[in-house]
Computed example of a mutant assay.
Amino acid sequence: MEAVSKTIHRVGDTPGMGQTVKACLQSLIGGVFSATFEAAALAAKAGVPGQVLYDVVSTSSGGSIAANTALEKIIDRQFVGTGSQISTMHKDLTISLDLARELGVPLFTATAAMQLFQAGKTKYPEGDNWIVTRVLEEIVGAELKR
């Protein structure tokens, strides 16, 4: 484990607990990404420059590594080849939602995120996560650029 991560968390003694924690984390990340994509489309439609949105978000309580990275990729128009393929997030959200269904836990935000990622994966199957923003931008008719 030390070869692939500098931080190792022991999450339980029961087999599968690591996968369960990962499903929780991916549900959260999917929600953060989706909210960021929607904020980017809203800012674009309103005429807010991408750099302004990034500067405000990245220095506020709304910022996070996930949101900041997503905004950087969006305003730089880097939608392919960034190492964060949409198919991986789609798979991870599928795992999260399957686990939630098995346990009877409603995941409203993760379900909405999955729909956005499904739209992105359908339209741009070779894209990275940020490509979802392009789908939203096409709907609103505006692009967020630096």
Rank of each mutant, 00 (worst) to 15 (best):
M1G: 08
M1R: 07
E2L: 15
A3F: 10
V4F: 03
S5T: 00
S5I: 00
K6H: 08
D13Q: 12
D13E: 14
D13I: 13
D13A: 13
P15R: 12
M17S: 13
Q19W: 11
T20K: 14
T20H: 12
T20M: 14
V21K: 15
V21N: 08
A23Y: 00
A23L: 04
A23I: 04
A23C: 07
L25M: 15
S27G: 14
S27E: 04
L28C: 11
G31A: 03
G31S: 05
G31Q: 02
S34N: 08
S34F: 00
A35K: 10
F37I: 07
E38I: 10
E38R: 10
E38W: 05
E38C: 07
E38Q: 09
A39V: 05
A39T: 07
A40L: 09
L42D: 03
L42Q: 07
A44C: 04
K45R: 07
K45C: 07
A46D: 05
V48D: 06
V48L: 12
V48I: 10
V48E: 05
P49F: 06
P49M: 03
V52D: 15
L53T: 01
D55K: 09
V57S: 03
S58F: 11
S58G: 09
S58E: 07
S61K: 13
S61M: 14
S64C: 05
A66D: 09
A67T: 03
A67F: 03
A70V: 03
E72N: 15
K73V: 11
I74R: 03
D76Y: 14
D76E: 12
R77Q: 15
Q78S: 12
G83Q: 01
G83M: 05
G83K: 02
I86S: 02
S87C: 14
T88D: 15
T88Q: 12
H90P: 04
H90D: 15
D92W: 02
D92C: 06
T94Q: 09
I95K: 03
L97C: 04
L97A: 02
D98K: 06
D98V: 08
D98G: 11
L99Y: 08
L99E: 08
A100L: 05
R101K: 14
R101Y: 14
R101P: 11
R101H: 14
L103H: 07
L107K: 04
L107Q: 07
F108H: 15
T109E: 12
M114R: 05
Q115C: 11
Q115D: 10
F117P: 06
Q118D: 13
A119W: 05
G120K: 00
G120A: 02
K121Y: 13
K121H: 12
K123R: 09
K123T: 08
K123M: 08
Y124R: 05
Y124T: 08
P125V: 06
E126H: 03
E126A: 06
G127Y: 00
D128S: 02
D128F: 01
N129C: 06
N129H: 09
W130G: 13
W130Q: 15
V132Q: 00
V132W: 00
T133S: 10
R134F: 04
E137M: 02
E138M: 10
G141H: 05
G141W: 10
A142T: 02
L144D: 01
R146M: 05
